[in-house]
């Protein structure tokens, strides 16, 4: 059997082989463009160091944005949703059972009401 057979999705297809070939071509193009850049920078000078608005950095571990703060803006924007969804996850075992019973009622309504 041909191992490279594409997936037929009904309205299209997916063949990773084509993707890989395109990816390699893209890499080659990137390499060519990179070759057009300047090679005359000076190593081990200020030119190769990161520039942080001109601030001098003493302890670089303080630069690390902690995991909890990476998407601060996103969670702040959806505060209303997150407050609600977080208060849903009470961590109380009885609520877990209660949700199960609620869903059982929902399934009852669906199966008996429509079928």
């Amino acid at each position: 059997m041909n191992p490279f057979v594409p997936i037929d999705t009904g309205s299209g297809f997916w063949n990773p082989l084509i993707w890989v070939i395109v990816f390699i071509i893209a890499l080659l193009i990137v390499y060519v463009i990179r070759g057009l850049g300047r090679g005359d920078y000076k190593k081990n000078t200020g030119q190769t160091k990161p520039f942080l608005s001109g601030n001098v950095v003493e302890n670089d571990e303080q630069l690390h944005v902690k995991g909890g703060n990476v998407y601060w803006g996103f969670t702040e924007a959806f505060k209303g949703y997150y407050n609600k969804i977080k208060s849903m996850h009470t961590g109380d075992t009885r609520d877990y059972v209660l949700w199960f019973l609620v869903m059982m009622v929902v399934f009852f309504a669906v199966v008996l009401g429509v079928m």
Binding site: K86, H89, T90, G91, D92, T93, R94
Partner: peptide, 10 residues
Amino acid sequence: DVTKIRRLKE
């Protein structure tokens, strides 16, 4: 008390 056994939430 089950209401106090909830270190895992949110």
